[in-house]
Design a protein around this nucleic acid. Structure first.
Lengths: 240, 240
DNA sequence: GAGTGGTCTAGACCACGGT
DNA sequence: CCGTGGTCTAGACCACTCC
């Protein structure tokens, strides 16, 4: 993991910050001191600080220095887990949760005008359309409504859909998932939700809409994940 | 705006991408060509490309080049509005929406154990606690439940709360809002929600929890924004 | 005015993708 | 193998903060 200079500086600094080594001054050492300490270039030091800043641990002020952001046990849960593609957590992040998939429907269809409007796929191309219910610790918590471009992601079968499509995409097809764009909404529950999810008295769902791109820039997926209230959390970070 | 070299390169490239100049090859020119064209250094060109990539327009592949991500009118709404601190949009982003604030409650209190657990403020410090309902086009769409550290943000009055606290913080107190960390959840509606929001038949709310930091790294705010379903959208971008 | 991070240049070598 | 982006160095000047 620490093959790169900047990565190893980043990790050293992060450990120290979390251990509290810099919390008296609420500052990182200045760049020149870090350059000396790590016997490296300004480029590497600055790249390490950039990464800490992207994670929400520090904030750089021109002319003053690199400031530590206050962090307490409560605010830890606001910090981003980078490198995690899903970006979705359970409300109790420590509990490693049990996970089970039910395939509700599976078909191959051609994109018509309405579906094109919804999914941004071109009219006329073939897509796999599937619905899967995710049980978390036995509770029907999420329904995934997927559309995969069948030209870019060929050969999906019910068995693959039941196991892991993302495994199939990456390991078998060797397709690189480069970028995922998302929108989050809260929607009133539709029949597909009330029929498949353990909503209890709740009549709304969270709706995470994702479109995913391969490393040639082509959109290969449109997915809506409808999830029950009170269970899932998303993180965001805004810097000025 | 285009004082910096990299910023002006970024804006030129962005315009060209959106105009479709590069869409035949689905690639950006290679770094060396951009260096020549803009008579600048590799640093500036790479920083411009980095910004395009952070915005979700392109994706760099080592050994291959910089790939354009497909974009259609539908996928435009997934692209990030950088530089917008609020990050919250109406479902129809173009319509400049009408906005009205009702101050529901206003008090100054001391943080106790329970509130500290919730807000991450230290026990014993004074905070302003307020609730405000936001009417969007006449609909009671959002209730903001704010706690401001009264030592860092002193002198809030009901009038300020009714007008704009963020104006007061930035313009009057000259406090720099450096970083905002957020969590998004869907919660079952509580009494504070049913009493103050136009929920209609819905019995859930979206809950955006924000903590904000000044440029000394101190947390000055904890806010929960509860909003009605079907009206608001959040964007996210994940890169590999 | 001294200290500090932000921008920029010129150059080198490495790692990966495709031929 | 060649072309490409990723990492890294050494150095310069600028813009901002704080005393």
């Amino acid at each position: 993991m620490a093959n790169n200079t900047f990565e190893s500086i980043y990790q050293t600094l992060k450990k120290r910050i979390l251990k509290g080594d810099y919390s008296i001054k609420m500052r990182l050492p200045i760049e020149d001191d870090l350059i000396t300490e790590f016997s490296s270039s300004r480029y590497a030091v600055r790249k390490a600080i950039k990464k800490l800043s992207e994670e929400g641990l520090v904030y750089s002020v021109k002319g003053r220095g690199v400031v530590l952001l206050e962090h307490t046990p409560q605010t830890q849960q606001f910090n981003l887990n980078l490198g995690e593609l899903s970006g979705i957590h359970t409300a109790s992040p420590d509990a490693p949760f049990d996970y089970q998939t039910d395939l509700v429907s599976f078909e191959q269809i051609i994109v018509d005008q309405a579906l094109s409007q919804q999914t941004a796929f071109e009219v006329g191309i073939p897509v796999y359309a599937l619905k899967r219910v995710r049980k978390i610790n036995g509770t029907r918590a999420v329904i995934d409504i997927n559309y995969f471009n069948a030209q870019l992601i060929p050969g999906i079968t019910p068995k693959i859909a039941h196991d892991s499509i993302y495994n199939y995409i990456q390991k078998t097809l060797k397709v690189k998932i480069a970028v995922v764009k998302r929108m989050l909404r809260v929607d009133s529950a539709q029949s597909v939700d009330t029929e498949n999810l353990a909503l209890g008295k709740n009549n709304c769902v969270g709706n995470m809409i994702s479109i995913a791109f391969n490393d040639s820039g082509r959109q290969f997926e449109y997915t809506e994940s409808h999830f029950i209230p009170n269970e899932l959390v998303f993180n965001q970070l805004i810097r000025n």
